[in-house]
Amino acid sequence: MPIDLSGYEALIFDFDGTLVDSQPLNHRALATALRKHGVTVAWEWYARRLGTSGLDLLAQLGVPREVAVDVIDVWSELIIQEAATLRTHQTVVRWVKEARRAGLRRAVASGGGGPVVRAGLAATGLASLFDVVVTREAVEKGKPAPDLFLLAAHRLGVSPGRCLVFEDADEGLEAARAAGMDAVDVRPWVGAPPQNTAQRPVA
């Protein structure tokens, strides 16, 4: 489906679930990383919290912060080891390429860790399509706070109101709204069921 890009100077894309079908891998890796700590995480529970940052997710599971740091290190390494298995969402990638042809600036703004996101972009051949990559470590607050999107716009040199966001999670869509940006909910095009159909901003 074509997206009307007129009026925008930049497009900002979430990574997990938007550009790539990474959530099953992310869940498997998290479950493995938590196993030695005696914590289990069901897919259904995880799927309802897509878009939540790693530390926030672990806090909801009751994992102490000092343990969470170790879990995230192991979790990240497991994902990086399997980055070559990631598959892109081709409809979303076509929008990225369309934006490049139109001369629009392009960024990734992800609540994931920098090493994981950059490994995924490299493994899928997407890295060269983006001017800027912003990840969780770069901001004080992750989504649904607007910080990631605002920082991406700043680094792109584009005002927030001229940016269009692509997201697959309610937290990300809320963050885009808080940043004063229009947003496209990609779930209808990537085969993911909406988490809350009452909140689906579409540009």
Rank of each mutant, 00 (worst) to 15 (best):
D16Q: 05
H37R: 14
R177V: 15
L34H: 01
G103V: 09
A152C: 10
P188V: 13
G161K: 11
V186L: 03
A42Q: 06
E137L: 10
R177D: 12
P2A: 15
L156M: 08
Q195D: 11
T91F: 12
E171V: 08
E174L: 13
D182N: 07
T52D: 09
H89N: 14
N196I: 01
G125W: 11
I12H: 05
V63Q: 00
I79G: 00
P160V: 08
D16P: 05
R105A: 06
A179R: 06
V116D: 00
L156T: 02
L11F: 13
G103M: 06
G7H: 13
T197V: 14
N196F: 07
V132L: 10
F13D: 05
R187E: 04
Q90L: 15
P2K: 15
T40I: 10
L25G: 13
G62W: 14
L150K: 01
I79R: 01
D4Y: 14
G161E: 15
A83G: 09
L57P: 05
R101M: 15
V41T: 06
E140T: 15
H154K: 15
A29S: 13
I80P: 00
L173I: 02
E98M: 10
G157S: 09
D168M: 03
E171W: 07
S6T: 12
P201F: 11
A47I: 07
P194A: 11
L151A: 02
G17H: 02
A175P: 06
R87Y: 08
V186A: 07
A83T: 05
A107W: 07
A33L: 06
A47M: 06
L11G: 04
A153L: 11
L61Q: 11
V184D: 04
F13L: 10
E174C: 12
G172P: 00
S53H: 08
V133Y: 07
L121S: 00
F130K: 05
V39R: 09
T40P: 06
V165F: 08
R118Q: 12
V92K: 00
V63K: 00
G161H: 12
R65T: 03
L150Y: 02
P194C: 08
K141R: 15
H154I: 08
L50N: 01
V96D: 00
A123G: 05
G172K: 00
E167I: 05
L5I: 12
Q60S: 08
V134C: 04
R87A: 07
T124N: 12
A175V: 05
V165R: 11
G112A: 13
G62H: 12
A83K: 03
S22D: 07
A33D: 04
V71D: 00
V139Y: 02
E66T: 09
